[in-house]
Amino acid sequence: MSSQLLIQTIANAIAASGMLALIAVGLTLAFGVMQMANLAHGHFFMMGAYTVYALYALGGWPFWWAVAAAVAVGAVIGLIVERGIFRPLQGDVVSGFIATAGLMFVFEVLVGELWGWGLSRPIPSPYMRAVRFMGAAVAFQRVLVIPFAVVSIGGLMFFMRRFRLGRALRAVAQDPEAAALQGININRMTALAMAIAGAYAGLAGGLMSTIYAITPSLGGHIILPALIVVVVGGMGSIGGATLAAVIFGFVMTFVTTLVDGVTAVMVSVTVMAVVLAIRPQGLMGRVIA
């Protein structure tokens, strides 16, 4: 591996970590607050990507407006799923999980019927320049996700610690009954968590839409790495998800560059199994009594 390729791969790995972190943080937050795992979370990401495709590539909106719209679309879908599926199924965790599996089909068909089933036309990047660093060239569009990931995840952590609303979210995650006794409206908190989760996935999808070849089945491809990150990080732990996102961002990018994409998933799954065999609750998960 030449030093040029090494630097390029490291840059790609950091970008992949940022994207994985944006997706996984929302997933783990929603899980922490509701104890419900959302299998359709990857499809939120896909909807974000298609929002940018529809508004920016087809509709001619400015790129950043389209990304903002993707965030809003993600948040709204999150709210709808919370209201339509998680709230009626409250307490029945298995059903919630399986229902979101059914939702994967719904989103996929919806997008396929709206914008076509095959590969969409490539979305032109608004920033054609490349960042030059020690002889390696990294596409500007690819590293764009990094500052967004740092700011929004840092912001979320700050929000969860310092703000009243964020602390209420954490209270619900720790003990819903005790939180309800403190006068916290649990339904509002789960709605908030799902809106944040959807918005972050929409943001990631919007930012990465110019890099990925987007198809309606994109969500099904992205969900497995995201779930691995959440499980290894410890379900419900935002810090854990971020840490695991960095680990798997590097593992997946390096294995993909050196061998191929299929092997990268295989290695990631193996790493996950080893971690779970040793630490069943994940790297930073709490032990559930």
Binding site: V93, L224, L227, I228, V231, V269, A273, A277, P280
Partner: peptide
């Protein structure tokens, strides 16, 4: 995966 509970278990089996 026997010691992994709930969601961790389902997702790990998928993986």
């Amino acid at each position: 995966l026997l010691r992994t509970k709930g969601w961790g278990f389902y997702i790990a089996t998928y993986g």
